[in-house]
């Protein structure tokens, strides 16, 4: 049985999301993913299971992928977060027309080209997980990609397009590194 008690009132939270600072008041028990979606309007991170299995809510916390359903918003006070909304370079222009590519991250482009999504619900978590995978292993084997992506469930694609997309993006990103 739940009874509100001494410290259930809202606490101040300051955090940076996708490079922008946000301040808010939040009840301690509020999940980070709910705070992102409801308080900050960043609905790209999805709620799929709230027990850490499906991975749809995966975001980067201080540069590392983690489940935003298994963290309280108050725990992110002072943190630097990145969500799917922050993955593409910010163009500043008007939104792209449907079917026209705006500025996309190489992972997003590869998912598009390799049909790495169908319903799109797991996609944000899949992208952020793949991002972390490639930053810890720039040239993963297919088995390593599959193991890394096993952190996120997809029910539509059978993962094949996703695996191909991550392979392609890894190549693009490595080529980009070499250019610099």
């Amino acid at each position: 049985m739940s009874e509100p008690n001494e410290h259930s009132q809202a606490r101040p939270v300051t955090l940076r999301v996708n490079g922008t600072e946000h301040r808010g008041q939040v009840e301690p028990r509020k999940l980070l993913v709910d705070f992102l979606r409801e308080d900050l309007g960043l609905t790209g991170s999805h709620v799929g299971c709230e027990h850490g299995i499906c991975g749809a809510c995966t975001i980067l916390i201080n540069g590392e992928a983690a489940r935003s359903c298994l963290m309280l918003a108050v725990q992110a006070d002072g943190a630097e977060l990145m969500t799917v909304e922050g993955l593409a370079p910010q163009s500043g222009g008007p939104p792209a027309l449907p079917g026209k590519t705006g500025q996309l991250h190489p992972l997003q482009t590869a998912f598009w080209e390799h049909h790495g999504l169908q319903c799109g619900f797991c996609t944000p978590g899949m992208l952020m997980t793949a991002y972390d995978l490639l930053q810890t292993n720039a040239a993963p084997s297919e088995a390593e990609i599959r193991a890394g992506l096993s952190a996120v469930l997809c029910r539509c694609t059978g993962y094949q397009g996703i695996v191909e997309a991550v392979q392609a993006a890894a190549e693009t990103l490595r080529a980009g590194e070499e250019d610099q």
Binding site: R37, E38, S45, E85, P98, G99, F121
Partner: peptide, 21 residues
């Protein structure tokens, strides 16, 4: 033909029921 749905879904701009407040 590459899907035109993907632009919004890849950038976190989809409109699932729970995205409406």
């Amino acid at each position: 033909v590459k899907r035109r749905e993907d632009q919004r879904l890849l950038t976190g701009q989809g409109a699932y029921v729970d995205d409406h407040h």
